[in-house]
Design a binder for these strands. Structure first.
Length: 454
RNA sequence: GUGGAUGUAGCUCAGGUGGUUAGAGCGCUGGAUUGUGGUUCCAGAGGUCGUGGGUUCAAGUCCCAUCUUCCACCCCA
């Protein structure tokens, strides 16, 4: 009885060609991170559920993958809890570990746990997979890789500016056109105070955020459904419909919510960031968007969201400032800010926009054809010499038909083939064939090495 | 988590109203060309029709369930 091969919903295998391209993305991002002085760390795929729960909002908790305890996991279970279907209680007694949902929460845990070994402000980057029990769609996977950069232990807005410059750098290098959207949670808080319903902050922002998608009438409808009074909605509407460039939007907004404490500091912070950005060279479009909310509960200041302009796929990068994520782990008053690049979506965008170019295909430069036992022995020495000179080379392992070996080189997109048969062994001159032009010539090994090095 | 579509060869897809041995293109294997790929010609292999039930003399086709992928919502990278 054989079984059909398969993998869990929302997960994927990556074939060599895809990996070459993914690695190109990772290399580009890593290079930028290091260029700005960030250092790598890694944390385990699984964390204690206590660490993960309650950090990213209710939605986040629902999307957590939980791991069944090892051994007799039914040991501590309460029968009544099962009978009465208290899912939460049963879950906590049979599962104490889960797969991480993002890299920010594990990072906060990491910082507190290693605070005495770190130098602050601590700048780190982390490129690892995360897991979410979401329903998969295009650009939405259950296992995907995030590339996080964060700086923790500094509340300077220069960090925000630096992150925006890095975002701009990464997407410029990858040739993806993006718009970088910015907002500040304090502005949103100011708005909710201004209309007199601070506790409705989340409801207001999620409704506002939909303006582009569903239009103004539906937003009003949604606000009503969420229990916001008509007179409040009348106050919000002008804010939602604010138009103009970044500064004029902020000025108009300041007239309305500038008297609130949060609103005023939020607007000041936003202006400072825009001022600083104007003195550096940024290629991407920067847009202050008063409706940008972002669901992650721990954000308290600036929030970022980056969208690809040519492909509709959700955000390719997002993040924000969190003032007290380390507090729950026992290290209060440490502010951090960071963003996360979604490698998988970046791949999808590049793929759809045909931004991957040929040189990413093959790694091997030259293939040695295997003519048989005697010749393979000689070829092995040639192979060693080529590799010693940093020429990526491989010897075909079997003395298969030459046609088959040539075809192998062709399909792996290997540029050169060396023919080394009896004739070449006696003369010491190897036959080098250029698969692209079809031309072939005879030369000694040192000459060939020189030619391949260029 | 809610609603809606989808699934036939490795890939992309044909297969009116149920009816014999389920097809094509590409790919794959072999040969024409015993030391030459990519082009051409010839031949061949490969499918429990996603899976499990049911209706029927008969199911790729109808019904139910389930899984996958995709779309919208939700949320987000």
């Amino acid at each position: 009885m054989t079984q059909k091969p398969g993998i869990p919903k929302g997960t994927r295998d990556f074939l060599p060609q895809t990996m070459m391209r993914r690695n190109y993305i990772f290399d580009t991002i890593r290079e930028v991170f290091q260029n700005y002085g960030y250092l790598p760390i890694e944390t385990p795929a699984m964390e204690n559920l206590k660490t993960l729960m309650g950090k990213s909002g209710e939605e986040g908790d629902r999307l957590l993958f939980k791991l069944l305890n090892s051994g007799d996991f039914l040991k501590d279970i309460n029968k009544n809890d099962i009978d009465e279907k208290r899912i939460g209680k049963v879950t906590t007694s049979i599962s104490e570990k889960g797969l991480r949902y993002d890299l920010t929460v594990p990072f906060a845990r990491f910082v507190v746990q290693h605070r005495n070994e770190l130098t602050f402000p601590f700048k780190r980057y982390q490129i690892q997979p995360v897991w979410r029990a979401d329903r998969p769609q295009k650009g939405r996977y259950r296992e995907f890789t995030q590339c996080d950069v964060d700086v923790i232990g500094s509340d300077s807005l220069l960090n925000e500016v630096e992150l925006i410059r890095m975002i701009d750098d990464v997407f410029s290098k990858l040739k993806i056109k993006v718009v970088i959207k910015l907002n500040n949670r304090k502005i949103l808080s100011g708005i909710s105070h201004y209309i007199g319903a601070p506790e409705m902050l989340t409801d207001i922002t999620t409704a506002m955020d939909k303006l582009d998608k569903i239009g103004i009438a539906s937003v009003v409808e949604e606000l009503k459904n969420r229990g916001i009074y008509t007179e409040m909605i009348d106050k919000i509407l002008p804010i939602i419909e604010l138009k103009g460039n970044n500064y004029s939007k902020l000025d108009k907004l300041n007239k309305v919510i500038g008297h609130t404490e949060d609103g005023s500091t939020g607007i000041k912070e936003m202006k400072t960031i825009l001022d600083r950005l104007s003195s550096v060279n940024i290629h991407s479009e920067i847009e202050f968007d008063q409706a940008l909310a972002r669901g992650l509960d721990y954000y308290t200041g600036t929030v970022f969201e980056v969208k690809a302009k040519d492909v509709a796929i959700g955000s390719v990068c997002g993040g924000g400032r969190y003032d007290d994520l380390t507090g729950v782990f026992g290290l209060p008053n440490v502010s951090g800010v960071g963003v996360s690049f979604g490698a998988d979506r970046i791949y999808d965008v590049m793929n759809e926009s045909n931004l991957f170019t040929g040189q990413l295909l093959s790694s091997t430069q030259v293939l040695l054809v295997n003519f048989g036992d005697k010749e393979a022995g000689y070829s092995l020495k040639v192979l060693e010499e080529l590799q010693k000179n940093n020429i990526k080379a491989e010897l075909y392992p079997d003395a298969a038909k030459m046609k088959k070996q040539m075809k192998y080189a062709d399909q792996k997109d290997i540029r050169y083939v060396i023919l080394l048969g009896e004739e070449e062994m006696t003369s010491g001159k190897l036959t080098l064939k250029d698969m692209r032009t079809g031309e072939q010539s005879k030369a000694g090994l040192p000459d060939i090495i020189n030619q391949l090095k260029d």
